[in-house]
Design a protein around this nucleic acid. Structure first.
Length: 890
RNA sequence: GGGCGCGUAGCUCAGCGGAAGAGCACUCGGCUUACAACCGAGGGGUCGCUGGUUCGAACCCAGCCGUGCCCACCA
């Protein structure tokens, strides 16, 4: 074993034969944290780079979607940190209003208690207790993944500072007339007993029953929600509808109630749908509410907050779903049902939290007047201040912000930011805003409701940096550099951060780039769900394959904006890759690779060294571009192939014969691995750190510099030479494989033409990689491999060659080459092509033609060189016993 | 009902105007002293269909078929 003096391997830790992530990851992470590498400073000269984490719910634990999201962010942050940016990745959590309240309420329920038994203050206290004991499991799991977040800046949306930001912006919006209180139809969840915003409602195609009800001899209306008829205050028809024109202004009797309601004309009614007549229930349908407003209709509420009928009469007290058939039955008794009810599939809204069918309900709530805010949010993307990646998703963004409805922000919950509004004895607003002490006055009381969780999330990029104070952090790290998140919350979160960020910071955008990724799916592109049983637990993978393998698997599928399929098999592949790196470095260290001192002078480098250095420069350039474009899949692909193919399969094999005695190669190998570890570190931080430390003895890869391509190391000649060498080796190997020669079996050969091809010095390498012996006495060339480029390999394969098989192969190659030649020739014979195609392309085609002709010549030469005898003939005359037939015995 | 996207090797996906690619799977041969979580070689695709534009189309256009997602206040 080599012990070259410049080798530090002897004093470096020896590496085990297999990489065992479980042994190194957690301690390594804690050392990084302790060293303060992740802590960003506001007072340095370095350029800033900042990302705020999409705050996971305090109730959440790390799922594979987080793992993807975090891997991407960590890669960006780690690369910028290595590039010398003052990099801040700010962690934190969201208080998750409904979700968290539900968790604690369920806990209470097991003790037979409701939140009302405790009262508001005690309940909130209970939620904080829950958070302290069971909340935030995800934070520990982020450590397992290796997230290089700045823990010293961890925030929570219910922090004092963030709460102050919420109150401050509420007051400003209110004073600017952008927040108002009004009676509107809102989405109401009869189970959660709160209002929901539009995006908290999921629509599914449900099968309902459409019943047609005769309101009068001339008017029939249809509905899927028969129970709402108790709240009807009109029938509407289109103003131009001839069938009903004479009835407009008259009244009809509302069945079951005895009430008389007017027939009104309203342009909203579609005369071609159904009968062209619509029942109008202003208190329980958004359309009807607007019709009611236009015609000054009353809006009686007939369902209470739990969806129970309140209208006096026989149906009072019935749940909405019990009332529906009861009312239909009663109508039928009166002969009011025109046709049999028929199945009808239509979109029905469900509470995104609990799945309960949402009930549109007239209610007094607080709203954000979004039009001006949304306009600004759209413009910031339109004028390029904020870039959405991939660009195609910007269309979706525009579609959303350009059609945004006002945002209902009040929630009838206890857990959250309580609306900072106080009412006087008459219910009038007497005080709004972030008063340091609760304002008091005769008969004053604060609004009972809390704000939508997304209200505080919308402030996240600047509230976490100290706003409304003009802090150092805010000046330094805002606007944040990139926002990374899944396209699924483009509307929920991104659009709202844009609205509030631009508003709060007077037009300053919350982030410069929005990098969207897709959803993690299984290996067949299916959505992960518990019912399919295809849900991946990232912690399980981390446990079994390592955090790096988990991260690499995710990053490797992460094309901008597109979904990421993963499977355990692929994670195993990633684990194998990490192990490959491990073993390559282990081999390198055992053979004197090191990083001490400058690279050898260029003249001292072999062609092989020059080749690998040249390849490395290309790789650095490619990876940089791919990172800039958020093409993580390509980053992984580029590095995977460079590491595995170029470095391991070729460079290490090519240098094996010389490395022991070549200080230059030892130094180059050390350099290549050093650079490779740096390039891979953002994606797979753990294994690269271990290997880099062993290789360089440096402090930490986390704070090491990011590679830059060195153009002076690009060597086209070396790449061409090694390309030829690879071709020769591959051709010989192919021949050997086809002929059933054992890989270990040496075959005597004579190589010629290497000098003319400029790779004479590499003959020993070709021989060792292709396992070719020098010709000895009695050498008899029985087969000649014509590789091309004037290179031939004469082999002594007595008794081993299947001439027929080789001929068949060559004939096949010949057909392909002929086809190739014909194609190229046809092109070059095309006058239009020659006239119109760019010169570069014509030149390429000429090259192709020349290449095809050379290949044909090569094949013909090979065919000529091939003996006439078939395998059977060879075997027939062979005197060797059957067991070793076809095998040359050395 | 609107909008967006996708159909390329058995699977998952790159390529997006000038010679069909990768990973996994598959076949064959190998423990060649870094690695069998490995090494070497190989098979496999009229690039959804039909037209069009072009000297040239997997790539651009139109239509069709299939498929996925998002948005939606037609009872």
């Amino acid at each position: 074993m080599s012990t070259s003096p410049v080798t530090a391997a002897a004093v470096k830790p020896t590496l085990s034969t297999t990489y065992l992530p479980a042994e190194v990851e957690q301690p390594r992470y804690e050392r990084w944290v302790a060293a303060g590498y992740f802590r960003a400073r506001a007072d340095t000269e370095r350029p800033p780079f900042s990302i705020v984490i999409p705050p996971p719910n305090v109730t959440g634990s790390l799922h594979v979607g987080h793992a993807l999201d975090h891997t991407i962010q960590d890669s960006l942050i780690r690369r910028r940190r290595m590039q010398g940016y003052e990099s801040l990745w700010l962690p934190g959590m969201d208080h998750a209003g409904i979700a968290t309240q539900n968790v604690v309420e369920r806990q209470l329920a097991t003790q037979g208690l409701s939140r009302h038994d405790l009262g508001r203050e005690a309940f909130i206290e209970r939620v904080w207790q829950w958070k302290a004991s069971s909340g935030g499991a995800i934070l520990g799991q982020m450590r397992r993944l290796g997230d290089s977040v700045d823990w010293s800046r961890e925030r929570f949306t219910m922090d004092e500072g963030l709460s102050r930001a919420v109150l401050t912006i509420f007051k400003r919006l209110y004073e600017d007339g952008l927040i108002y209180r009004a009676e509107r139809i809102i989405n109401w969840c009869p189970r959660c007993l709160t209002a929901l915003s539009d995006i908290e409602v999921d629509h599914t195609d449900d099968e309902g029953e459409l019943v047609s009800i005769r309101y009068s001899d001339e008017i029939v209306v249809a509905t899927t929600r028969a129970e709402t008829m108790l709240g009807d205050t009109a029938v509407a028809v289109h103003p131009d509808d001839e069938r009903y024109r004479h009835l407009v202004g008259t009244e009809v009797e509302l069945p079951l109630t005895g009430r008389r309601i007017p027939v009104v004309a309203d342009g909203h009614v579609d005369p071609t749908f159904g009968t062209g007549a619509v029942k109008v229930t202003p208190a329980h349908d958004p359309n009807d509410f607007e019709i009611g407003q236009r015609h000054g209709l009353p809006s009686p509420i007939v369902l209470d907050e739990r969806g129970v009928i309140t209208a006096p009469g026989p149906f009072q007290g019935l749940d909405r779903f019990e009332a529906r058939p009861a009312i239909v039955a009663a109508l039928r008794e009166q002969g009011r049902i025109v046709a049999e009810k028929r199945p009808y599939v239509h979109a029905v809204g469900h509470c995104s939290r609990c799945g309960t069918t949402v009930e549109p309900r007239l209610s007094l709530q607080w709203f954000v007047h979004t039009a001006p805010l949304a306009k600004a949010a759209g413009d910031a993307v339109r004028d390029g201040r904020v870039r959405i990646e991939p660009g195609e998703l910007a269309k979706r963004y525009f579609a959303w912000v350009d059609n945004m409805h006002d945002w209902c922000i009040s929630r009838q919950l206890w857990w959250g930011h309580r609306i900072p509004v106080w009412y006087g004895p008459e219910g009038e607003v007497v005080c709004v805003g972030p008063e340091d002490e609760a304002p008091t006055g005769p008969g004053w009381r604060q609004d009972d409701d809390v704000l939508d969780t997304w209200f505080s999330s919308a402030l996240w990029p600047f509230s976490t940096l100290g706003w409304p104070e003009e802090t150092e952090d805010l000046a330094r790290f805002y606007p944040t550099s990139v926002l990374v998140t899944g396209y699924d919350i483009l509307f929920f979160w991104v659009a709202r951060m844009m609205m509030f960020g631009l508003y709060a910071r007077d037009g300053q955008q919350p982030f410069n780039v929005v990098a969207l990724h897709g959803m993690v799916r299984d290996q067949h592109g299916k959505k992960m769900s518990k019912s399919y049983g295809n849900v991946v637990d990232p912690l399980d993978w981390i446990e079994r394959f390592g955090a790096d393998a988990t991260r690499f698997t995710l990053a490797r599928g992460a094309n901008p904006g597109s979904d990421v399929p993963v499977s355990e098999e692929w994670c195993q592949g990633s684990r194998n890759f990490c192990n490959k790196l491990w073993n390559a470095t282990r081999f390198a260290l055992l053979n004197g690779a090191h990083t001490g001192g400058d690279l050898p002078a260029y003249e001292e480098l072999s062609t092989v060294d020059r080749w690998v250095l040249s390849r490395l420069q290309h790789v650095i350039g490619e990876v940089d571009e791919q990172f800039e474009r958020f093409e993580f899949a390509k980053v992984c692909d580029t590095l995977y192939h460079f590491a595995w193919d170029d470095v391991c399969d070729w460079y290490l094999e090519l240098t094996k014969p010389v490395i022991e005695h070549s200080p230059a190669t030892q130094r180059v190998l050390g350099h290549v691995l050093d650079q490779l570890m740096r390039l891979l570190h953002p994606v797979i931080p753990f294994v690269t750190e271990e290997l880099w430390l062993a290789l360089t003895g440096g402090e930490s890869l986390v704070i090491a510099g990011w590679p830059a391509p060195d153009k002076s190391l690009v060597d086209d000649a070396a790449e061409a030479d090694i390309g030829v060498l690879q071709r020769v080796v591959t051709e010989v190997r192919r021949f050997r494989s086809d002929q059933g020669l054992k890989p270990g079996q040496r075959v005597a050969a004579q190589l010629s033409g290497l000098a003319a091809a400029g790779i004479a010095e590499h003959e020993p390498l070709v021989r060792s990689l292709a396992r070719l012996e020098r010709k000895g006495d009695g050498f008899q060339a029985t087969a000649t491999l014509v590789v091309g480029g004037g290179i031939t390999v004469a082999l002594d394969t007595r008794g081993t060659i299947d001439v027929a098989a080789e001929r068949a192969r060559l004939e096949k190659d010949r057909i392909a080459a002929q086809k190739e030649r014909a194609g190229a020739a046809a092109k070059l014979g095309n006058v239009d092509f020659l006239a119109k195609a760019p010169e570069q392309v014509v030149a390429k085609i000429r090259q192709r033609l020349a290449g095809a002709e050379a290949e044909l010549a090569r094949i013909d030469a090979a065919l000529g060189a091939l003996g006439e005898r078939s395998r059977s003939e060879v075997l027939a005359e062979a005197s060797t016993p059957p067991a070793t037939q076809g095998r040359r015995v050395d």
